[in-house]
C-alpha cells in the first residue's frame, strides 16, 4: 500500500523529472519510447493495457504494442471526433487513435499538451479495456480544473481509470485483473 508520505514525495519529484524531459526535448535530444502493452489471456477471457496508468513528460513518445497473440487491439482517445465518445483529453489536445493493431504491430503517439488523457480499446470497450496517461504535473500552467477533477469512470461504460494521484505518485499503475 502506498503511504501518503511516499505519494507526496513522488509527486514532489515529478516537476524535476518533467523539467528534465522538457529541457531535453527542447535541446533536440531523444528519449526511448515508453511502451504500453496490449495484452490478453490466450483464449481472450481477459484483455488489458499494461500499465493501465502512466505518467510522462510533455513530448514523450508513447508506443502501444499489441503483445496479444490471438486478438487485435487499439488505443483510441476518448473524444467526440472519434466514434462520438465523450471528451476525456485536454481541450486543446488533438484526438488520436491507432485503429486496430494485429499481433506484433505497434503505434506511436507523442502527447504535447499537459493534462489527463483517457483512452480505450475499440473492440474491448464493452469489456472495460481502458487506460489513462497523465502528461506533466499539476504545476503546469496548461493544466485545467477539468484535468484535476476528471472522474475515474467513463460515463455509462464499464471499467475504472487509475486514480490521478496514484499515477502521479507511482508513474506506472498496473491493470486491475
Amino acid at each position: 500500500m502506498t503511504s501518503r508520505r511516499s505519494v507526496l514525495l513522488g509527486a514532489s519529484l515529478l516537476p524535476l523529472v518533467a523539467g528534465f524531459h522538457a529541457w531535453r526535448a527542447a535541446r533536440g535530444g531523444t528519449t526511448a519510447p515508453v511502451v504500453i502493452a496490449m495484452r490478453g489471456t490466450p483464449r481472450g477471457e481477459q484483455v488489458w493495457f499494461e500499465p493501465q496508468g502512466l505518467w510522462v513528460a510533455p513530448g514523450q513518445t508513447i508506443r502501444f504494442v499489441n503483445e496479444d497473440k490471438a486478438n487485435v487491439h487499439s488505443a483510441t482517445a476518448f473524444h467526440p471526433d472519434l466514434y462520438g465518445r465523450e471528451r476525456r483529453i485536454p481541450q486543446t489536445a488533438q484526438p488520436w487513435t491507432s485503429e486496430l493493431l494485429l499481433p506484433g504491430e505497434h503505434y506511436e503517439v507523442s502527447l504535447q499538451v499537459p493534462g489527463v488523457y483517457d483512452y480505450y480499446c475499440l473492440p474491448h470497450l464493452a469489456h472495460g479495456m481502458i487506460g489513462r496517461i497523465v502528461v506533466g504535473t499539476p504545476e503546469d500552467v496548461k493544466w485545467t480544473q477539468e484535468d484535476y477533477h476528471r472522474s475515474n469512470r467513463p460515463t455509462g461504460l464499464p471499467g475504472t481509470f487509475p486514480d490521478l494521484n496514484d499515477v502521479l505518485a507511482t508513474r506506472r499503475v498496473p491493470p486491475r485483473k
Binding site: 490478453g40 481472450g44 477471457e45 481477459q46 486496430l100 473492440p123 469489456h127
Partner: peptide, 16 residues
Amino acid sequence: IYYNAGHPGVEEPHAH
C-alpha cells in the same frame, strides 16, 4: 465453452 471479452466481428462479451 469459455468466456471471451470480444473481438472485431463479435465485439460484445460472449461465450465461445
